[in-house]
Amino acid sequence: MTDVSPAVPHYPAGAAPRGWFHRNQQSLAPWLFLAPGALFFLFYVIFPIFQSFNISLYEWDGLSPAEYVGLSNYRDLYWEFVDRDAFYVSLKNNIIWLVLYLLAIPAGLFIALFLNQTVTGIRIYKSLFFFPFVISQVVVGLVFTWFYDPTFGILNTILDWFGLGPINVLGNERYVTYGIIAAGLWPQTAYCMILYLTGLNAVDPEQIEAGRLDGAKGLRMLWFIIIPQLKPATFIAFVVTIIGALRSFDLISIMTQGGPFGSSRVLAFYMFEVALSEYGFRMGYGAAIAVVLFLIMLCFIAYFLWSMYRDEKRA
């Protein structure tokens, strides 16, 4: 480029060599444009990560001076894990969340395939299916709390018709997590559905035509022709679902407050309880939980980055 431009020189011939900035303009420009975003990212994301690591080594109530305690917060977490205490329960629930929340992906795909047709009023049906994603998680939580209500809820009214005993989903330590996940799946499925609906628009009709000529139908068509083409949508759906599962906080806070007796806690909620709630303010301990949560996320982040890198390279 620089070799081309001298046709219109900025300086009269024979002037001093151009400034450092002008010489490196091409390579500097992207960094300059990136700078504001990068600075914010550094300040609000990267820096707090390290700060969390640091705070997790202290005992601090947010008021008095922090006291350095080394890894003792992690040791307490370890003992809570061994004793099957709150931390163990949270970790276990987090894993249940991660696994079951992924059901949103096939469910979303199924609904998307079902809605991907041209009938009168399909737009209305599509928006109705998308509706749960638009309403706030708080509302979803409340609706499901009433739905599950052991005395007045519709779930138990329906069970009653079939002569099945009332079950208190949110009051039973065995069912509560599944009950909340079911509530969470409702909006998450809608989200995945939207991702797949847009993905289906981009499916190449020629390939379907070709598949059809080769005799592919039904499930085989879906598995070998459609789903491979939906890979980008699946990837995004996977990412948002994993992130959604790991930060499942609002539903738990609305529906059970982590109860009954702490059996529906997940790490994010436990961290909040320990560090920021009315009875909390163990900042160091909260930070230690945050670090554990971060390490779990890091596994997924690493996988996401790696697979994106691989795709870029291949392209």
């Binding site: 004793d83 205490d85 009051g171 109860g259 009954p260 007796f261 702490g262 309880e273 009315e278 009875y279 909390g280 303010f281 163990r282």
Partner: peptide, 28 residues
């Protein structure tokens, strides 16, 4: 203290639902 209150009230709730867990709750 706030922390003890939180842990113990959770224990009380558990006890009211599952009184047979008393030993485990008290140990906790």
């Amino acid at each position: 203290s706030a922390e003890m209150a939180k842990v113990s009230m959770e224990g009380f709730q558990e006890f009211m639902v599952k009184p047979d867990n008393l030993d485990r709750i008290l140990a906790k």
